[in-house]
Amino acid sequence: HSHMSHTQVIELERKFSHQKYLSAPERAHLAKNLKLTETQVKIWFQNRRYKTKRKQLSSEL
C-alpha cells in the first residue's frame, strides 16, 4: 500500500469535485501528472465515491 502525498490528494480531490467518474484516458493522464499508477487513481476514486455515498445515506437518516 503506497502513501499519497498531501499534494496528490489535493489534486485528486479537485478533480473529483468536477467529475466523479474518469474515463480511462483521463485516468491515465491524471496518474501521469501526479506520478501515481492508474490503479491508484482508480481505487482512490472508487473509495471516494463510496465515502460520498455513505455520507449522503447517513445524512438522510
Results as ranks from 00 to 15, higher is better:
E11H: 06
V9D: 02
E11D: 03
S5F: 05
T7H: 11
M4S: 00
K55H: 09
K53H: 15
R27S: 04
K20I: 04
K42G: 03
L30V: 05
K15A: 14
K51S: 08
N33Q: 14
T7E: 09
S59M: 10
L34R: 00
S5P: 04
T7P: 04
A24S: 07
Q46H: 08
Q8N: 02
F16P: 03
Q8H: 03
K53Q: 06
P25S: 11
E11A: 12
K15G: 04
K15Q: 08
E60W: 12
P25Q: 13
T39W: 14
W44D: 00
K53W: 11
Q56K: 14
Q40W: 02
L36F: 01
R49I: 04
F45G: 00
Q46F: 07
L57P: 14
Q56P: 14
L34W: 02
L36Y: 02
I10V: 10
H18R: 09
Y21Q: 06
E38P: 14
S59Y: 09
R54W: 08
I43A: 05
N47I: 14
T52G: 10
R54P: 13
A31I: 01
E26M: 04
K42H: 10
A24K: 12
L57S: 12
V41T: 00
Q56T: 07
S5K: 04
L36Q: 00
L34A: 03
T39Y: 12
I10N: 08
Y21A: 02
E60F: 09
L12R: 01
R54V: 10
T37M: 03
Q56M: 06
K32R: 05
H3C: 14
R54L: 14
V9M: 15
S5C: 12
S5H: 04
E26I: 05
E11W: 07
E60T: 05
T52E: 15
R14K: 13
L30H: 01
H18W: 04
L30E: 01
R48A: 14
R48V: 05
K35A: 07
S58Q: 13
K53C: 15
H6K: 13
I43G: 04
W44Q: 01
R27W: 06
K32Q: 13
R27A: 12
L22F: 02
I43R: 09
T52W: 15
H3G: 07
R49G: 00
K51T: 08
Q8I: 07
H18Q: 06
Q40C: 07
E38C: 09
R54A: 07
L36A: 01
L34V: 03
K53T: 08
E26Q: 11
N47E: 15
N47G: 05
H1A: 08
W44C: 02
E60G: 14
W44M: 00
F16R: 04
W44K: 00
A31L: 02
R27G: 02
K20L: 03
V41I: 09
K32N: 09
N47L: 10
N47W: 11
N33I: 15
E38F: 05
Q19M: 07
L12V: 02
R49H: 05
M4E: 00
T52N: 13
I10K: 11
M4P: 05
P25D: 14
V41N: 00
Q46V: 14
Q19H: 06
T39V: 13
R14H: 12
K53M: 12
T37P: 02
K20F: 03
E60C: 15
L61W: 04
Q8P: 00
T39S: 13
L36E: 00
I43L: 13
R48K: 12
H29N: 14
M4K: 02
S59H: 13
K20R: 07
L57Y: 06
H1V: 09
Q19N: 09
L34C: 04
L22M: 04
T7V: 09
E38M: 04
H18E: 11
R49N: 03
H29Y: 10
S58N: 10
R49W: 04
R48C: 09
H1R: 06
R27P: 01
S23W: 02
E38T: 14
E60K: 08
E11S: 05
P25L: 11
E11N: 03
R54G: 15
E13F: 05
R14V: 03
Y21N: 01
H3V: 09
Q40T: 06
T37L: 04
K20G: 09
R48D: 02
I10D: 07
M4W: 03
L57C: 15
H3N: 09
E26C: 05
P25V: 13
L12C: 06
K42P: 00
Q46W: 06
N47D: 07
Q19P: 03
L22R: 00
L36C: 07
E11M: 06
L57M: 07
E11P: 02
N33S: 10
Q46D: 06
S58I: 10
R48W: 06
L61S: 13
L57A: 12
H18L: 12
S2P: 09
H3S: 08
V9N: 04
S23N: 09
Y21T: 06
Q56Y: 13
S17W: 13
S2V: 12
P25I: 14
S17E: 11
A31R: 00
P25H: 13
V41A: 01
L36S: 00
K35N: 13
S2M: 13
T7G: 08
S59C: 15
R14E: 04
Q46N: 07
Y21V: 03
L30M: 04
K42Q: 10
A31N: 03
K51E: 15
M4D: 00
Y21R: 04
A24F: 10
N33V: 13
S23H: 01
R14I: 03
L30F: 04
T39A: 12
Q19V: 05
I43P: 00
N33G: 06
L12P: 02
Q46L: 05
E38R: 01
A31D: 01
Q40K: 02
K32C: 10
S58E: 13
K32D: 05
E26N: 02
L36V: 02
Q8G: 02
Q56V: 06
H29G: 05
L22C: 13
W44V: 00
A24L: 12
K51H: 12
L34S: 02
T39F: 08
L12W: 02
E60M: 14
L12K: 01
L61N: 14
S58V: 08
K42S: 07
L61C: 15
M4A: 02
R14W: 05
E60L: 15
E26W: 01
E13Q: 07
I10E: 14
H6A: 11
K53A: 10
Q46I: 15
T7N: 13
I10R: 11
H3P: 10
S59R: 03
S58T: 12
E38N: 04
R27E: 04
R48E: 11
K55G: 15
N33Y: 14
R49D: 00
K15E: 08
R49M: 04
F45S: 04
K53L: 08
P25E: 13
I43F: 06
R14F: 12
H1Q: 06
R54I: 14
S5A: 02
Y21W: 10
K42Y: 06
K20P: 08
T7F: 15
T52L: 14
A24D: 03
H18P: 01
T39M: 11
H3T: 09
N33C: 15
S2L: 13
T52D: 15
R48I: 09
K55C: 15
K35I: 03
Y21E: 01
F16H: 03
S23K: 06
Q40H: 02
A28G: 05
T37N: 03
K32P: 02
E38G: 02
S59D: 10
S58K: 12
S17L: 08
K55D: 15
T37C: 07
L61A: 12
Q19K: 14
H29D: 11
R14Q: 07
S5T: 09
K51R: 09
R14D: 05
S23C: 09
K32H: 08
I43M: 10
S5I: 02
L30Y: 01
T7M: 11
A28E: 08
L30Q: 02
S59Q: 12
E13K: 06
K51V: 06
H1I: 13
T52M: 13
L12I: 02
L61Y: 12
H29M: 10
S2C: 15
H29I: 11
K55M: 11
A28R: 09
V41L: 04
F45V: 01
K42W: 10
A24R: 09
E13W: 04
S59A: 09
Y50P: 03
L61H: 12
L61T: 15
R48M: 14
S17F: 15
Q46E: 10
K53S: 10
S17Q: 13
E38V: 09
Q40E: 07
T52K: 14
K42D: 05
H29R: 12
T7I: 07
T37H: 04
S58C: 15
H18F: 08
W44L: 02
L57V: 11
S23A: 05
R49A: 05
H18S: 11
Q56S: 10
